[in-house]
Design a binder for these strands. Structure first.
Lengths: 200, 200, 200, 200
DNA sequence: AATGAATGAGAGTTCATTCAT
DNA sequence: TATGAATGAACTCTCATTCAT
């Protein structure tokens, strides 16, 4: 951290993170330049370095911002005692809503995190794995209660849910007119039909 | 001054496309440099320009190479008169197998095509849309025959299939030990259960 | 707007000079940054400018501080009426002791003064020449009294004494465990043997 | 090494080393900029990097060039079977002549080598120590033959010779009108008188 | 068909300096 | 007396691209 926790400082730093997210999301990490980020904030290029030690650090902060509260969300979902279906719906909803809200940051996390220096990447990867594991455990519990078909591979299932959410997340970011709730509903419909036992 | 259809020339050009695909896939378009591509081919940086007018052109060729025959494949699938389920299985199989075979190029098409100049991007987009539309029509036919549930949104469904295949494609490219056929089987299982009417 | 002779002000300014000396000595003028100087003083970068108009001015002050009293010392040596040998010993002692005491500043004067703006450099050069001339005159007097061999070139001799002292000064600054008095003794031994007539 | 050993390449690289030496000698490593070096060669700034991976590498090459053949020279002096006095004269002559010939490079080695990355610095330091040790051994041999006074500290003596030569070397580089042979003669005169037994 | 050499534009980064508070 | 925030110029370094050979 450069500045000391002034109010103004942290406000500006947050603004810097959002600006970086926006630029990285549009042009990719290597395709972006710090000048663009600074301009989006209304400051000069050199001033950016008052808030970030390097472009790479900016990427790190964006990625962290991108997944942070969506991972936290998952924790509270997996800790709750809802039914399998309710949890799956909550997961998809949380995931896709995150895309709408911190849209660029989350996209950046997905597409650009591999350009992070190793140390940072590993720290983030743990967060990501955490997310996947909790989801896996939801599926496992579903199998035990009979909600999920016995033939389902829980690891595969978790991966598939995440993959599909990210794919739609991308579309959501790109097309701001997409009806979020419709997408959520159709995704959960597919997944529930795809994984649960047939009980009608 | 670019080579006039010599045998050697087109062989080398093909090699150049594959080298570019490999490098772009690993580092992204902006993160790659022409020197890396040249080195992978065993020639010198300047010599690349005998095969490509620019780095951008190289990207264009890679992207084209990446989707071309996977789109053609889809054409033959959609024109066949198999059942809905057979077509869906064939689609997923073709899509994921493509990833294994021309893995890098297809990944590049997915991740980097937006850095192409507009004209080129539009041409490719048509190919991509074509693919999606054919898939949509497969779902529509499925609905008519009753194989697919009436509540399914065919546009959504096509998008979802593509999204899931790409997400798994990414994992396949990154982890060469993943069992391709297992992935295919589980994906189709999920999709068929997710979209078809329950008939057992 | 610079401080008006407050007690605290001049104390802090002196601290600033010493801090600058230390940093310049270690990293050279161009290799140093104002932030390092400020940090060494325990203030912030911007605050330095309360004490110096510019980085260059700081260099000037350090250089001045570095030679000032060592030149004054020479004045009192050369004005005394000791023998040639005593004066030579006193000179070497004063010179090398200066290095131990205000080590960094003197080193900075030697190594970095050429980065000063012309005006300032000339002013300092006069001080340096003064020193050398007094030393030369000591040698000349030595020749007249017969203490120094007639073949000795006094200009050369003075330059040589200074050169050797600076060379050892450098080693003294870098290696704080060097025995100062041993060095002094060996230097004077060499010089006296080298320049005086052989009288044993 | 970047280029392959073309004739032109190595000629240009040598030119680059000399240009760098000249600029570093005048302004110090941190005070110099690569643009100045390139301009002195008659090429553009960016082209410099065809010959050096970095500014630091340039410094390393300059330093190496600066001491290399002067160290080699010392080897042949110390291996010869001349008298102590002859060897001392040869040493001073070689050292100071080096300054005239590769003047800037040698000055750079003396003043700027500490800005080299550790690995490189150590390699050069070995060369320098080698030089000093050979000189020390010449003094030791001198003591055994009785040419050098028994009270002389050989380590100190070697250091002193080097220090004095470097001090004069600096003056030689700065003032091209200085008569080199006169300086050599006076230095050796001082040193011989300073260190040898009095035999008149 | 290929290369060595060079270029020029632009990137990230550093830093002395300013100034309102 | 001191600081946080910002600036702008300079610097090192990278790279797509060109072209004579």
């Amino acid at each position: 951290m450069l500045g000391n926790g002034t109010e103004k400082y942290s406000k500006q730093r947050q603004a810097a993170i959002r600006a970086a997210a926006s630029v990285f999301a549009e042009k990719g990490f290597h395709g972006s330049c710090t000048k663009d980020i600074a301009e989006l904030m209304g400051i000069k290029q050199g001033s950016l370095y008052y808030y970030f030690k390097s472009k790479e650090e900016a990427l790190g902060e964006v990625c962290l911002y991108g997944i942070q509260d969506y991972v936290e969300h998952m924790a509270s979902i997996s800790d709750s005692d809802q039914s399998f279906e309710a949890k799956l719906i909550a997961t998809v909803t949380s995931h896709l809503t995150s895309y709408r809200e911190r849209n660029e940051a989350l996209k950046v996390y997905n597409d650009e995190r591999l350009y992070l220096p190793k140390a940072r990447r590993i720290k983030l990867k743990k967060l990501g794995s955490d997310y996947r594991q909790r989801l896996e455990r939801i599926f496992e519990a579903g199998k035990r209660t009979g909600a999920v078909r016995q033939s389902v591979d829980c690891h595969f299932a978790a991966q598939a849910v995440i993959g599909m959410c990210n794919a739609w997340g991308d579309l959501i970011v790109r097309d701001s007119e997409l009806d979020l709730f419709e997408v959520i509903q159709k995704c959960t419909d597919l997944l529930i039909n795809g994984f649960t036992t047939k009980t009608q």
